[in-house]
């Protein structure tokens, strides 16, 4: 089955980012395909590449990057929501002449059309609320 996921909450501030990550890993383990993880609202903060997790807390950003890199899952952050929250990839950093690209390159910055495309191209769409 083809599944897409929306993550609405920021990692740590909301449990949803972690729940979504565990759900995605289980879905892959059971043989499903994750078409796209769409990070929406504060969910875009999962892309923050400069975070340092304490040793006794799970590093959610690293978990998402691992999921993306080892399973080829597309990690998409909503451009409108990301820009205002300071999540920029290199292209957006250059466009807005900011100092740093804050989003890890495992995440792609996309428009809301990709959210709707994820809905139309998947058998199931699961929203993880903040």
């Amino acid at each position: 089955m083809v599944i897409s996921i929306a993550v609405h909450g920021a990692p740590y501030a909301s449990a949803g980012s972690r729940t979504a990550l565990r759900f995605a890993a289980s879905a892959l383990g059971l043989g499903h395909r994750i078409h796209r993880v769409f990070f929406h609202h504060d969910g875009v903060l999962a892309a923050a590449g400069q975070g340092v997790a304490p040793q006794d807390e799970e590093d959610l950003h690293a978990g998402w990057v691992r999921l993306g890199e080892s399973h080829g899952v597309e990690l998409a952050i909503c451009i409108a929501n990301a820009l205002k929250r300071g999540m920029l990839d290199e292209a957006e950093r250059d466009r807005y002449e900011k100092d740093a690209a804050t989003a890890h390159p495992a995440f792609t910055v996309v428009g809301l059309g990709q959210l709707i495309e994820a809905m139309t191209e998947s058998d199931r769409f699961v929203t993880f609320a903040a």
């Binding site: 599944i3 759900f23 890993a25 289980s26 879905a27 383990g29 059971l30 199931r124 699961v126 609320a129």
Partner: peptide, 16 residues
């Protein structure tokens, strides 16, 4: 979590 995935499979839609 595996049961969670199976529930998503078995149901026609998910509402949060």
């Amino acid at each position: 979590f595996d049961d969670f995935v199976r529930l998503v499979e078995r149901c026609e839609r998910v509402v949060t």
